[in-house]
């Protein structure tokens, strides 16, 4: 078949299509690579650094979600080194904001919390920064709690690519980065918001939630968003 190449994942030979990413090929072949910012059918950005893999002949770790496969490539998805770096990336996410699982709407349904359990992160080695952050309750139906945001930008991409509204984006840079709606106005005043809730359903944590839910009650349906994205033509 044209465009078909062969690569090795964890020693196993698999076939792949030119243009696919390492993550896509790994998933198609039942290999698990942890991810947080990645969402099926949405453009990958390589923001969370959890999907890093080792590639033979490359002396740095590469994000599987944005690295295209090449013929003859040999990829390692699980190793002690990768485990150590994935833990560091995850612990830094926890230390950056105020993630209090016990009082979160997404407790027990949160991808960040679940990833900590999966990777065996039982404590955070880095000092918490305990930033002072706001909660935007101005929207009629939804809440944005910056304390719980990991800046994965899933909401930004889903809103721009699937809904086509592009209400969300990231303001400032570095540690001062914040997800903002329109011109950093309260969400409830964002003229471009269609109230569709795709951002809420694709948010991996409790940062975006529906109003009226108590602790543990918010269950996200990101499958609804990714299926819609695929039907509307996938990555743009």
């Amino acid at each position: 078949m044209p465009g078909q190449i062969s690569i090795r994942i964890d020693g196993e030979y698999v076939t792949a299509q030119v243009g696919q990413t390492i993550l896509e090929v790994a998933r198609a072949n039942g290999k698990y690579i942890p991810t947080l910012c990645w969402l099926e059918s949405i453009t990958p950005v390589g923001a969370c650094r959890l999907c890093i893999v080792e590639v033979s002949g490359v002396n740095r770790l590469l994000p599987a979600c944005t690295t295209p496969v090449q013929d003859g490539m040999s990829v390692t998805t699980q190793s002690e080194k990768l485990q150590a770096y994935r833990k560091i990336a995850l612990e830094l996410l926890f230390s950056e904001r105020n993630h209090i699982c016990a009082v979160c709407v997404s407790n027990n349904h949160c991808e960040l919390q679940g990833m900590a359990q999966k990777l065996g992160v039982n404590s955070i080695r880095y000092a918490y920064s305990f930033p002072k952050l706001s909660v935007d309750v101005s929207h009629e139906r939804y809440v944005l709690d910056h304390n719980r945001c990991i800046l994965c930008t899933r909401c930004v991409r889903v809103c721009a690519q699937v809904e086509g509204a592009h209400v969300w984006d990231v303001s400032s840079r570095g540690i001062h980065s914040l997800v903002v709606s329109d011109m950093a106005k309260p969400w409830g005043e964002a003229v471009n918001c269609t109230n569709c809730g795709k951002c809420v359903n694709s948010c991996p944590t409790g940062a975006l939630a529906e109003k009226g839910f108590a602790v543990e009650e918010m269950v996200k349906r990101d499958g609804k968003v990714t299926r819609l994205a695929a039907r509307r033509g996938g990555q743009q």
């Binding site: 592009h166 209400v167 984006d169 400032s172 840079r173 903002v180 329109d182 011109m183 003229v191 471009n192």
Partner: peptide
């Protein structure tokens, strides 16, 4: 000013959020 940014957004057909993201970056 906010008015200038909104005017530019309108005329360039770029999302407000994206323009705000650029000016704060």
């Amino acid at each position: 000013s906010t008015e200038v940014l909104e005017y530019v957004a309108d005329k360039t057909d770029l999302p407000l959020a994206q323009i705000y993201s650029v000016v704060t970056f």
